Amino acid sequence: MTDSHKSFASRNWLAGIGFTFIIALVSFGLSKLPVLNHVGQLACAIIIAIIFRQIWGYPEKLREGIQFSSKKLLRLAIILFGLKLNMDIVFHQGLGLLVKDVGTIVFSIVLTMFLAKLLKADTSLSLLLGIGTGVCGAAAIAAVSPILKAKDEDTAIGAGIIALVGTIFAVTYTIIRPLIPLTDIQYGIWSGISLHEIAHVALAGTPAGSDALAIALLAKLGRVFLLVPLSFILIYWMKHKRKTEADSDTKIEFPWFLIGFIIMSLFGSYILNRVIIVPASVMDGISFFTSFILTMAMIGLGLNINLKDLRTKALRPLLAMLITSLFLSIITYFIV
């Protein structure tokens, strides 16, 4: 490759990253508007990417930069997401909730896959939605996709569905809260063990007060923590599955970014504000950066979605996930 070709390729690579950056910026702005502020920048970004793909097609010249966002930045976002998990709090205060969290994850995956089989829904997408429902939404889907060898299209569709459905459930929780006979603490636990993403738990828990929000986030953090053992179970399952099927390609790439996730969790739990004092403004900035690059990654994934395929492929997994989410909310309501 000549120097001019290398320079051209580098410009296209940077332009591809810049492309996802600009759409993420637009999505962030849109997520501040009424109504859309409940949907969130992640869902806005995926919708914009899907619309762009249907009208103008995939920007092939920018492919390398877009794929950098959808793969490398995605893994970086998952690593930084570990800072949101305070393992000390989970171990010391949330062990009782952890049992409920395990139940939530097992129930969500098993029921979603059972319904997917009944509905003859796409297995790969249904499994991603079951994991996203049980653990922590789009972040969980992004984390397990490389392990499950899921298509980028399935990852993006799953993340978009989780973001939208989870928002609807969270808003519904806030509406019915005054009508249900739960204390604020019970309501917080219910939100934490049943809603899809941390953002959804925060949205539903905030109106009930600081104590309810704290217990809701604690319950949710337990589910985030369980992403690690679940990932290793999935690695074992995939290896066994491939050996059973006599697949010639039995190698499962180890998700090294999960090690980064664990390291950042330990760092955030036992080093930050104990050994190293970090201002709250800095932590807020890191949190925003994490959300922003995750949004850039989802744009790259969203560009792989073809709506013609979406209509036939996603409706049944969506139905399975909706039914699971509804049963999860009802059952956990009576448990708390």
Rank of each mutant, 00 (worst) to 15 (best):
V171C: 08
T155C: 09
T244E: 10
V201M: 07
G94S: 12
L98Y: 08
I89Q: 11
M283Q: 13
D101P: 05
G130H: 02
G188K: 04
I263Q: 06
L33G: 12
M283C: 07
V90S: 09
G16D: 01
L118Q: 05
I259G: 14
I78R: 02
S191E: 10
A156R: 00
M238K: 04
V106G: 06
A170D: 01
A216L: 11
G285Y: 11
V102Y: 08
Y270R: 07
T324L: 05
I78L: 05
S4A: 10
I147Q: 00
L234I: 14
G132Y: 00
I22K: 04
L98K: 07
G40P: 04
L179F: 07
A246R: 13
Y236M: 15
I17T: 14
I180C: 08
Q93E: 15
N304Q: 14
I17Q: 02
I78D: 06
I46D: 01
S31N: 12
G300R: 05
P229H: 13
F261I: 11
I105A: 05
I89F: 03
Q41C: 13
A49M: 09
S191L: 14
D249M: 05
I305Y: 02
I263G: 06
A204E: 06
G302N: 03
I323M: 03
T133P: 01
I141C: 04
L115W: 00
S70N: 11
K313G: 04
A159R: 00
V275Y: 05
E153L: 03
N86D: 15
F19E: 02
I335V: 10
P181G: 09
R75A: 09
G285C: 05
M321N: 04
A15N: 07
I176G: 09
T183F: 13
A159V: 12
H240V: 11
A216W: 06
N37A: 08
K241A: 11
G192A: 09
A199T: 08
F28Y: 15
